[in-house]
Nucleic acid binder design. Structure first.
Lengths: 209, 209
DNA sequence: CCAAAAATGGAGTGTCAACTACAAAACTGG
DNA sequence: CCAGTTTTGTAGTTGACACTCCATTTTTGG
C-alpha cells in the first residue's frame, strides 16, 4: 500500500485550494523567469513571490524541470490565447494591422523586457531540456496553425490570391514575430518588431488578387 | 607596489602562449554553451574541454561573466565574419540566395543544434546580464549595418527601386534570420529558416524598379 | 644567464540552491 | 464528527559549482 500523499506526482488529485496554490506558483515562476531570466529565478525566489513554502512547491511539482514545463504550458496558454482572439476572425488587412498592434503594444507594456515568453524560453531551454523543447515545438506549431487558418480565411474571402502559399507565409510571419521580438528585447525598443511585421504585411499586400 | 601577476584583470599583458590558452578557453566555452546551453556548461566542464585547470581560467578571466562576455565577442566575430564575406559584395539577387544558402547550410552542419549563437545567447542573457545584453545589442546593430550596406549596394546598382527603405529591410531580414533560426532550432529542421528567408527575399523581388 | 613576470598544477573552501523529512494543520466525504 | 487525505510549516541535508591559495614550472627581456 503506497502512501499517496506528498510526492506522488503521477496523476494527482487537487482540491480547489490546491489548484489555486499551484496556479500561484506557476504564475509567479512565469513572471520571474520572464523578467529576470532562468538563472536568477531560483526556487527560493519563486517561493517568496508566490508566498509558499518549499514543501508546497514540491507538493505540486516533482522537481524544478516539472515546474518549468508547467511554465511553458502556462505561457503558451497566455500567448496563444491573446493571439487566438485576433487570428480567429482574420478577415481583412485591417485585422492584420490590429494583430501587429497587439504584439507591439504588449511588448511596450512590459517595457520590452522579456521579449516573447516562448521565444526566450526557447533560448534557454532548447539545448538543455528536451521535454521543454518538445513542448515549445508544439506551441510554435499551434501558433503557426492559428496564423495559417487566419490567412486561409483571408484567401477564401478573396483578399489574397488563390495560389497564395499560406503555409509558408504562416512560418514567415511567426519568424518575423520571434525575430522582431528578440531584436526589440535586446534593444529595449519596440521599433524592430514593428518594422519586421510591417515588412511581412507589406509582402502580403503584394499577394492581393 | 602592486603584484601584477595573477588576477589583475584590468589591462593584461599576455604571451603568445597565454593568448593561445585564452583562445582555447573561449572557443571551448563557446562550443559548450552553444551545444548544451548555459546551465549545463559549467566552468568545470569548460576546463575539461579546453584542457586547462581552474587557476588558468581565473588567470585569464576575472569571473564567469567576464568569460561569457568574451564568448559573446567571439561568437560575434565568427557569425559576422561569415556574413561579412557574402554581404560586402551583395551585387545581385543571386548573391542574396547564396547568403540564404550559407545560413541554412551552416545550421544543417550542426544538425540544427544551437540555432544562431547570438540569438541563443540573447535568450539566456538578455534579462540576467546587462553587459552581455549591451554587447549583443551592438553585435546586432553591426549585423544590421552589414545588411543595410549590402542592400544599399543593390539599390545603387539599380536592382532595387531608388525609394527602397533599406534601413527597414535590413531590420526585417535580420528578424527573419533570427526568428527562422529560432523555429528551426526548436524543430530540429532547417525548413523554417529557409522559408522565412525565401519570403523576405520574395518581398525584395517586388521592390525591383 | 638570470631575475622578473607569466603560465600552470593541484588541492582546496564557501555558498547557495535544489531537494528532503517529518509532523502539524486544514480540509473533504461519508 | 471522524477517519482519511490534502495542504502547509519548519528545519534541515547534500551536492555542485564558482572561486581561491600558494607553490612550481616555464618563459621573457635585458
Amino acid at each position: 500500500m503506497t502512501k499517496t500523499a506528498g510526492r506522488d506526482h503521477g496523476a494527482r488529485t487537487f482540491t480547489v485550494k490546491g489548484q489555486a496554490t499551484r496556479t500561484r506558483i506557476v504564475k509567479s515562476a512565469s513572471r520571474l523567469i520572464a523578467e529576470q531570466g532562468m538563472e536568477r529565478a531560483t526556487l527560493e525566489e519563486i517561493q517568496g513571490e508566490a508566498g509558499v513554502s518549499a514543501s508546497q512547491l514540491y507538493h505540486y511539482f516533482a522537481d524544478k524541470s516539472a515546474l518549468i514545463l508547467a511554465v511553458v504550458e502556462d505561457q503558451t496558454d497566455v500567448v496563444l490565447g491573446s493571439h487566438r482572439a485576433l487570428l480567429q476572425n482574420l478577415d481583412s488587412f485591417q485585422a492584420l494591422h490590429e494583430w501587429r498592434d497587439m504584439i507591439v503594444d504588449s511588448l511596450e507594456a512590459q517595457h520590452c523586457v522579456g521579449g516573447c515568453p516562448l521565444g526566450s524560453l526557447t533560448g534557454t531551454l532548447a539545448e538543455s531540456n528536451p521535454l521543454a523543447r518538445q513542448a515549445l515545438k508544439n506551441s510554435f506549431t499551434e501558433w503557426e496553425r492559428l496564423l495559417r487558418t487566419g490567412l486561409n480565411a483571408m484567401r477564401e474571402r478573396g483578399q489574397l490570391r488563390k495560389d497564395t502559399d499560406t503555409e509558408g507565409l504562416a512560418v514567415s510571419l511567426l519568424a518575423a514575430v520571434q525575430g522582431g521580438l528578440l531584436l526589440s528585447q535586446t534593444r529595449r525598443d519596440s521599433s524592430a518588431v514593428r518594422i519586421a511585421l510591417d515588412s511581412s504585411i507589406a509582402y502580403l499586400y503584394t499577394l492581393r488578387p
